[in-house]
Each structure stands twice: as C-alpha cells, then as structure tokens.
Design a protein around this nucleic acid. Structure first.
Lengths: 210, 210
DNA sequence: CGGGATCCCTTAGGATACTG
DNA sequence: CAGTATCCTAAGGGATCCCG
C-alpha cells in the first residue's frame, strides 16, 4: 500500500486519495468549467507550484479523473466521464463551504472559474420556472454569463452574446446571493450597475441563494 | 494568509481548507456515524498518527466543524450542526469513490464506520416504499444494523435489537450491492448466510446500489 | 511560448515513545 | 484516556531552467 494511501477499502477513502490531495479539488473545479491547457490551469490557480500541478494532473490521470488530449498541437486537460460525475460532490462541498464565507481577506482573490462554480452550486431550479433570460455578470475583470431556460441554468465564463441584463458589481454580489442585501438596496446604494432590463434583477437575485 | 491556505475567496476553497487535509474527511466520516472519544477515533482510523489526529481535531474545532464536549468525565468529539451538514457532500463523494472500487487490496481493511457510511450513501429510498424491516449485517467482526421504515433507512453500527433478517457475509457484499451478484446466486454459492426471513434478502439487495 | 523538469528549502505528516 | 514530544521522511512551496 502506498505511503499516501489510507489502507481502507471504502468509497470515501478512494475519493479522498484522488481528490483530497492538495490542490486537486481546485483543479477539478476549474476543469468542470471547461477543459484547459497546462498554462491556463497555472494561471487560474494562483500560487500553485508547477511541479505540484504536474504531479496532480498525473495522479488524476492515473485515477481516471482527467484525460490528456492533444488538440490542435496543444495539450488539453479535460475531465473524463467519471471525472465529470464529481460535479455533484464538488457542488455540495462548495455550497457547504460558502456558508462559512464572510468577507474576502485582503490577500484573497476571486477567479473566474470559482465564480462560475459559485453560481452553479447555488442555483435554485424552482426559482427559474417560466423564465427564459440571459445575464452577464461582471466583477472587475471577470465576466461570466448565465443563461436560464426551462428551469435550467447554464453558467459559463466569458461575456454573454446578447444578454437581457448586464450586472456590474463587486464584492456585494455575495451579500445579494446570501439574502443579506435586497436587489432594491443594491441598486440604491450603487453596489450593482445595470444595463438592460432592470426588472430582471429581482429574478436574478432569486435564482441563486447561498 | 496562512501558508496552507489557497488564497481564494471561494466556498469550495473554504471547504477544501477544512476537510481536504489529510485524514480530515475520514474523521468527519466516523463522526457522522456517532460522536466518539479520542481513542475511538484512533482505533477507527488505523494508521493515523496520534499527533495528526490531535492537530486535525483542533483545526476542525476552530473551523466550527467539530465540538469537544465533556461527557461523563470523558472527552467526546462530535460534529456541530454545521459539521453535520457535510453529510450530503460526504455521501456524494463516497458514492463517487465507490464506483472505482474493485477488490480490496490485501492490506486494506474495512472499518465498521466505513461500512455504515457505505450503506447510507447507497440507499435508494424508492426501493424502500412500503417496507418496514430490520436487518443485521455481519462481516467478520463487524456488525451493523439497518432499520427501514416509511421509505427511510437508519444505518448504524452494532447489532440490531430484533432483526427480521441477519445477513452474514464477506467481501461478496460489495458484488451484491453493485448488482454483479444476484441474491439467489449469493445464497447458492454460500457467500451469504441468513438467519430469519430469507425472502427479505431480495428486498435488502434492492435497497442499496453502488 | 507552451509544457513541463529540476533544484533547494520548509513544513506537514508518519512512526514511536512518553506523560498528566 | 487523552493527548505531547521527538525524530525522520516525503510532500509541498518557490524560483529557475530547459526543451521542442
């Protein structure tokens, strides 16, 4: 038995050996958003040592979680089908952890992929009934888009093609999602700026809940 | 920012910092089964160094996951309400990891609490409709009991008070739960031994599915 | 420039012994 | 029983270097 193994025949132990290693869950998180190149992963995970990224990718590949693919003369890392099935567990963990969040520490950053997963994990299908709309959310440099249709949401990185509402905001987005700030208050105190149909902000705020 | 922090303001990162440390998920798993004393945790997690257990418990306590309680002149560790809300995520991870399990390696052990969580994570409520029954499962030294009622299951460590069916088995239980072995085959080849109402074995096998 | 490998140093974690 | 204390190894952090 490997030195890093826990020596138990147990599903949770297998999962822990694969994804509870340092940085592994964050690599999986970013790959759940989209397949990426080595350098994209490095950039999306500020602070990860390059040797650790290489080692994790190798282990995740051996574990059947990640696949290395050659695409257009570049190396692409993507989740296998088995890896994608981690989504439910990752979303559950993210939801749980988000309840602990208060304010960002001064040295803490927000990455585009972490925002995408934050929205995915807090989406409430029941609030999307009868709504078809496209949103773009901007936090500083970060842009992501939310498309809602048929009670389903698709959240991805980047700008939306033709958003019904563009929401420019900042850290206050967390208060809005936690219900500590109403949409009306957010507009009034300037913590969100809207472009498009402003009535959609209420619907948007109901869609996601920490 | 602590050296072990990931420096991101993100729910998943917070969760990872708390429970993706080495051994932390297994400590949580065992505490999800029942509150325990320090020595019980040591015994239930073969191979954990005592200093690591002490360090983890301290961190989990600081993180609001675990509470240290004095009970009857002994120290009891138990999950806080917040810690108990990890159950959904832990079960999801355990289910995911269980799909990777093939055979136990020669040096891998099975602990009572890992079995309890395996049953909890694979329970299918739809298979329990209209069933009220009490089972005891024995694997070598390990005994656990399953009580099914109103489409809900309660799985806990230890023998059942008055089981309708006692199932003595071995590693074959995993094949049975994975659907690789039918109840009839399991009885025929001797990989399960029954005491009580043998017709309940079919129901039992349907209740849990990897 | 993308995709790593290598180096050095620090620290967490494993093994075991010991104590209030 | 509930942990410290200690020693040692291996993994992780940080920077740089290398190769196609």
């Amino acid at each position: 038995m490997s030195r890093r193994s826990y020596g138990q025949f147990c599903g949770l132990v297998r999962a822990a050996e694969l994804v509870a290693e340092r940085w592994a869950l964050l690599i999986v998180r970013d790959l759940l958003v989209s397949p990426k190149r080595y350098t994209d992963l490095l950039n999306g995970l500020p602070g990860i040592p390059t040797n650790v990224l290489a080692a994790r990718l190798k282990q995740l590949e051996e574990g059947g979680v990640v696949r290395r693919r050659l695409d257009d003369r570049a190396v692409l890392y993507e989740l296998t089908e088995y890896g994608q099935e981690l989504e439910a567990a990752v979303l559950a963990l993210g939801r749980w952890g988000a309840r602990m969040l208060t304010e960002p520490a001064p040295d803490e950053v927000v990455t585009p992929d972490s925002m995408v997963m934050a929205f995915r994990s807090t989406f409430r299908p029941e609030a999307a009934q009868g709504l078809t709309a496209s949103f773009e959310v901007r936090l500083g440099e970060i842009a992501l888009h939310v498309h809602v249709e048929d009670g389903e949401a698709h959240v991805d990185a980047g700008a939306a093609p033709a958003p019904d509402l563009v929401i420019e905001t900042g850290p206050a987005i967390k208060a809005l999602m936690a219900g500590e700030l109403t949409p009306a208050e957010a507009r009034a105190n300037g913590s969100v700026r809207l472009t498009g149909d402003p009535r959609l902000l209420d619907r948007f705020a109901a869609l996601f809940r920490i």
